[in-house]
């Protein structure tokens, strides 16, 4: 095939393609309606599933959301762990809780030798 023949061939083919492109391919009315009906059905199912998941979440999920979600829960857990650790192994400047528990009860008389009647004398 010569170059001229190929050009003619391409030109004829392009005329066919152009005719096909111009033949407005319309969406049949029934097909459009079926596509939209599918869309409505899938959308309704999807929304129903979403609402069901939210309703089934329960009180714990609501509490979690109230506290600020998982990031807030992470901070809370860290604080709890630090508190427990300080209790078990306190730093030097804090009293030993085990020692405190072993101490006996004692009483101190703040008024010493003063009688209550002298501190609160009656008038007249």
């Amino acid at each position: 095939m010569t170059m001229v023949d190929k050009d003619i061939e391409d030109s004829i083919l392009e005329t066919h393609f152009a005719a096909a492109r111009c033949a407005n391919t319309v969406l049949p009315a029934g097909l459009a309606a079926r596509m939209l009906a599918d869309a409505d059905r899938v959308q309704a199912e999807s929304l129903r599933v979403g609402e069901g998941a939210l309703a089934g979440a329960g009180r714990w999920r609501q509490l979690l959301a109230l506290l600020g979600g998982w990031p807030a829960m992470g901070g809370l857990a860290t604080a709890c762990a630090a508190g427990v650790w300080i209790g078990v192994s306190p730093p030097d400047f804090l009293p030993d809780p085990v020692g405190l528990m072993a101490e006996q009860n004692s009483s101190v008389n703040l008024l010493d030798s003063y009688a209550l009647s002298s501190v609160l004398p009656e008038d007249g």
């Binding site: 492109r21 407005n24 391919t25 319309v26 969406l27 049949p28 009315a29 029934g30 459009a32 309606a33």
Partner: peptide, 15 residues
């Protein structure tokens, strides 16, 4: 140009 054109058969109620 063809996209977006939706029509029914002649005489049909347009959807």
């Amino acid at each position: 140009a063809r996209a977006g054109i939706i029509s029914g058969p002649p005489g049909a109620r347009g959807v």
